[in-house]
Structures are given as structure tokens and as C-alpha cells.
Computed example of a mutant assay.
Amino acid sequence: MTEPYSDADKQALYRAIYERRDMRHFCGGKVDESVLARLLSAAHAAPSVGLMQPWRFIRITDNNLRDQVYALVQTERRATAAAMGERESEFLSLKVEGIRDCAELLVVTLKDKREAHIFGRRTMPHMDIASTACAIQNLWLAARAEGLGMGWVSLFEPDDLKTLLKLPADSEPLAILCLGPVESFYDRPMLEQEAWAERAPLEHFVMENQWQPNEP
């Protein structure tokens, strides 16, 4: 039988998991190139269905392009707020991204020509998205271990971002990632701190043998 990690290694792993936060507040600075390489390597080590490795990472280093990405997010932020009904003003008061403040800006997309990958996707084609989410989570946990904050921004119109970044027609952008130094990590998820929502207890999400309604 395989041996478990040492207690110290297990503690470090669980610490990264539980202290990871979706960060919105950054303090500029830089991410060392060697650290960024480690983070992207950790992302690339993620599991993927049929080993298709569907993720692609675009590093935004042009400030003008960063401003255009920011503008796309603000457009969707306003549209999302309008769809919130009575929570519109409350939503608009939330800080939902750190695009202009973070040290590094990454866009994660699904690769093109994904229809050629059938292994594990014939009945579940969305497994390419699940695989890419695993890569993003790897990057997130590695960033926390390196003392860096990361935030996942999904407020954008995919076709507009695709056009802006000249993506192939059959690719799909999934995430804008803000990455970099932060003054501190939130004690709790920011949306809990802002009283937007609360994490429900685990027992609401674990079932046995069949579906058991238990809405949080």
C-alpha cells in the first residue's frame, strides 16, 4: 500500500485548500517569472479527460489590451446588475474584479479542434470544461502556497473576448484570472464578508444511493 504524506505535508495541502480565496483586491507589484512558470506548470499538471489537455493560457502583457479586457468586464457587470432586479444596487457596490490592479492577467480558453477528442466526451462533451477547471484550481492552490492572490472573473461576453484576443472560432474563453501580490487574504470568502451569500453546511450536499432533496 502507498504511504500517506507526512503530517506536515498534509497540513500544508489542506491549509492551501481552506485558505484559498477568490481575490478582488491586489496591490500591484510583480510575479517573478520563475514563480509564474511554476504556477503554469502546476496548472498544466491537472488531469484531463482522455489526456486532451484542453486548456490554453493567454498572458496579457499589453496595457492597452488589459484596458480593453477591463471595458468588456464592466459592460457585462452593468448588464448583470440590470438582471439582478432588486439586488442591482447591492451588486454594483461589490468589487467583482482586480483587472487594473493585479500584477498578472491571464485569460484561460478551451483549445480549438476539440471535436477530435472523443475519449470520455462522446456523451459528455462538457468534460473539456471540467478538465480546464481542474487546471485553474491547480493554479489557484499553487498561487496561495506561493503567497499570491488569484481571482476568477467570469463577467464577460465570450464572443467579444474571443474577438478581442483573436481566438479561433471553435475555441471558447472560460476565465479571466487576476493574479498577484495582495496585502492580505480575506478571512472568509468575500461574498460572505459582504453578506451577499453564505456557504451552506456540507451535509446539504452529500447524499447516499439516490437523490435526497435537502436544499440549503
Rank of each mutant, 00 (worst) to 15 (best):
T2V: 11
Y5P: 14
K10H: 14
Q11G: 13
I17E: 06
R21C: 05
D22T: 03
H25A: 13
F26P: 08
G28S: 04
G29Q: 04
D32Y: 07
L40W: 04
L40T: 07
S41W: 15
A42M: 11
A43R: 04
H44L: 14
H44G: 13
A45F: 10
R56N: 03
F57Y: 10
R59Q: 11
R59S: 11
I60P: 01
R66I: 01
V69R: 01
V69F: 01
V69H: 02
V69C: 04
L72Q: 08
L72N: 05
V73T: 05
R77V: 06
R78C: 05
A79R: 10
T80Q: 11
A82V: 14
M84V: 05
R87I: 10
S89K: 15
E97P: 06
D101M: 06
C102F: 07
E104W: 07
V107L: 01
T109L: 06
D112P: 09
R114E: 01
A116E: 09
H117K: 07
H117E: 04
R121C: 09
R121A: 08
T132C: 08
A135S: 06
A142K: 04
A145F: 09
E146H: 10
G147V: 04
G151E: 03
F156Q: 01
P158D: 00
K162D: 08
L165R: 06
K166Q: 15
L167P: 01
D170E: 06
S171M: 02
E172N: 10
P173L: 00
L174Y: 01
L174H: 00
S184P: 09
F185D: 11
R188W: 13
Q193E: 12
Q193N: 08
A195R: 08
A195C: 10
A197F: 03
A200D: 10
L202F: 12
E203V: 13
V206G: 04
